[in-house]
């Protein structure tokens, strides 16, 4: 008798927990995102398209894509290197390195932006170095308030994503399979390709996607380093500029531009799930 009531209790708990989860996700995430899409179309589809077609938006889109690509590329490479170093070797300062990697998680992106200004700006300690390079090579590289600054800021804030996904997986998998392959004469890269990569590919992809999504939407750090609309603005900055300009048209336009980011993020998540699903079906490994 008591057993039965217990089971009923856990059934009720299950229903309550599931309901809370769905309600919360719905109210906090889904409804606001949908309202963006709805608002973006409030002045008709023609207006929607024309507000996406301005040269400010297309410039912002280009820079966003550039910054995102740079962030994903750099942080994937760095993430692989760092997670490998942290899980496969023991060395002095391991704990310190592991903590340092997490800094972007814990400090405000604006501070990251300001930090780059303090480093590369006119008063910054690295400014003479940049100047020296420019003089020597005859170039005119600017970092602060220019595209390189936007890239750096984006890379900074998305720094830990890939390595944080990889480290637990590499730790859990151990090194037995790699050792076995090495004993049979396999060399470093071929071990990575045939043994390690298949084990970490989903974590890697997931880390890259998180990195991608975060880079796409970065505002604070880029805001500190980017001041020219149509030249160094990314989509989030463009959205902000449109919204703040205050006219009814520009507010709807800002929703329209926002919808690009939402749609891109949703597409990426769907692609990831499809890929993962297909792969699992193929190898029979769950």
């Amino acid at each position: 008798m008591e057993k039965k009531t217990r089971r009923e209790e856990s059934k009720a708990a299950k229903a309550i927990l599931i309901t809370i989860s769905f309600l919360f996700v719905g109210l906090m995430l889904v409804v606001p995102l949908i309202s963006i899409l709805v608002n973006s179309l409030s002045k008709g589809f023609g207006f929607y398209l024309s507000s996406l077609g301005t040269k400010f938006v297309s410039s912002a889109l280009k820079i966003t894509i550039l910054a995102t690509a740079a962030a994903v590329l750099v942080n994937t490479l760095f993430g692989l290197v760092a997670s490998w170093a942290l899980t496969r070797f023991s060395f002095k300062g391991k704990q310190v390195l592991s903590t340092l990697i997490d800094i972007p998680f814990s400090i405000s992106p604006v501070i990251a932006g300001l930090a780059y200004i303090m480093t590369f700006g006119r008063m910054g300690w690295a400014a003479p170095i940049v100047e020296g390079i420019n003089n020597a090579l005859g170039t005119d590289i600017q970092i602060v308030f220019a595209i390189p600054g936007v890239l750096l800021a984006t890379i900074f804030v998305t720094f830990p994503f890939v390595s944080r996904e990889l480290i637990p997986v590499l730790n859990a998998e151990g090194t037995d399979e790699e050792e076995a392959a090495a004993l049979m004469g396999a060399k470093g890269f071929s071990i990575f390709k045939s043994i390690t990569f298949p084990k970490i590919k989903w974590a890697l992809l997931y880390g890259m996607i998180l990195c991608f999504a975060r880079a796409l939407g970065e505002f604070g750090a880029v805001h500190a380093l980017s001041k020219t609309r149509g030249k160094t603005f990314t989509l989030p900055l463009e959205i902000d500029a449109l919204y703040l300009s205050g006219s009814a048209d520009s507010i709807v336009a800002s929703f329209a531009v926002s919808s690009i980011l939402v749609i891109m993020a949703v597409i990426i998540l769907i692609l990831r799930n499809l890929l993962e699903h297909r792969e699992k079906g193929k190898s029979g490994i769950v």
Partner: peptide, 17 residues
Amino acid sequence: AERGIGFVFQNYALFRY
């Protein structure tokens, strides 16, 4: 790899993929 040995690991370390 050049010692001419075969090694069976404790948990076998089979290549799972």
